[in-house]
C-alpha cells in the first residue's frame, strides 16, 4: 500500500509528475518524426540523384549520423548548436538564442532518424519498377507530379514496415535526452527513485511505461499498415 501511495496523484505521490513526463517523451518523439521523415526522404532523393555531388553529400551525412553514438550526437548538438547559434545570432541580430534540451534532442534524434530513414526509403525506391516512371512520363506528368501522384503513394506502402521499426527505435532513444536535462520518463522516474530510495519500483515503472508505449504504437502502426495495403489482393 505504501508503495502505491508513491504513485498517487498530487503532492504526496509521483503520479502527476510521471504522467507529465510521458507527455514529454511522446511529444519529443512526435515532434522529431515529421522532421526526420522529411530529411530522410530528401537524403534518399539525394543518394538516388544522378548528380554525383548530391550523392556524396547525402552519403557523408548518413555515414556520420549512423556511425556516431546517439548519446554523443546529443551532446555535440546540445553544446555545439548553442555555441554556433549564439555566434550566428550575435553577429546577425546582436542577441543570443537559447537551444533548450527539447530542441537539441529533436535535432539530434531527427538527424539520426533521417540517416536510417533514408535507407528505408532507398530500398523502397528500389521496389518501384522503372515502368512507373516511364508510364508517368508517357502521360506527360512533370517530375514533381510523378513523385507526388505516382511514386510517393507506392513508396509509403513499401517503406511503412521499415519506418514503423524506426519509430519504435526513436521512441526508445528519446530516453537519452534525460541526460541533457529534459524531464522525460527516465529522468523523472530517476529523480523519484533517488528521492524515495525506491529504484526498483520506479525503474520498473519506467520500463513498463515504455512497454505500453511500444505496444500501443505497434498496434496503431499495424492498423496503418493494413490500411495502406487495403488495395492489395488478399492471398
Amino acid at each position: 500500500m505504501e508503495l502505491l501511495s508513491l504513485l498517487s496523484y498530487g503532492s504526496e505521490g509521483w503520479g502527476d509528475e510521471i504522467l507529465a513526463s510521458i507527455g514529454v517523451t511522446i511529444s519529443l518523439a512526435l515532434a522529431t518524426l515529421p522532421f526526420g521523415l522529411l530529411l530522410g526522404f530528401l537524403l534518399a532523393l539525394g543518394i538516388n540523384s544522378r548528380e554525383s555531388s548530391l550523392q556524396i553529400s547525402a552519403k557523408i551525412f548518413t555515414t556520420i549520423f549512423r556511425g556516431l553514438p546517439e548519446l554523443l550526437t546529443l551532446f555535440i548538438v546540445y553544446y555545439g548548436a548553442q555555441i554556433l547559434g549564439n555566434f550566428l545570432f550575435q553577429t546577425v541580430f546582436g542577441t543570443t538564442i537559447e537551444i533548450n534540451s527539447f530542441v537539441a534532442g529533436m535535432v539530434a534524434l531527427g538527424f539520426v532518424f533521417s540517416a536510417y530513414a533514408s535507407e528505408v526509403f532507398l530500398s523502397a525506391f528500389k521496389g518501384i519498377s522503372q515502368g512507373q516512371y516511364e508510364g508517368s512520363a508517357a502521360l506527360g506528368l512533370s517530375r514533381f507530379q510523378t513523385m507526388r501522384l505516382v511514386i510517393i503513394p507506392q513508396l509509403i506502402k513499401l517503406a511503412l514496415p521499415g519506418l514503423s521499426n524506426l519509430w519504435l527505435i526513436l521512441l526508445k532513444e528519446t530516453s537519452l535526452v534525460s541526460v541533457i536535462g529534459l524531464a522525460d520518463v527516465v529522468r523523472i522516474t530517476g529523480v523519484a527513485a533517488r528521492v524515495e530510495k525506491e529504484p526498483f519500483l520506479f525503474f520498473s515503472l519506467a520500463c513498463l511505461i515504455y512497454l505500453a508505449l511500444t505496444f500501443l504504437s505497434s498496434a496503431g502502426l499495424e492498423k496503418i499498415e493494413k490500411n495502406a495495403r487495403r488495395g492489395e489482393v488478399r492471398s
Partner: peptide
C-alpha cells in the same frame, strides 16, 4: 526490445542493487 537500454541499465544497476 520494447524498453530503452538506458532504462534497463538503470533498472539493473540501481534497481537490483537495492536488494
Amino acid at each position: 526490445r520494447g524498453t530503452p537500454l538506458l532504462a534497463q541499465l538503470f533498472l539493473f544497476y540501481y534497481g537490483f542493487g537495492s536488494f
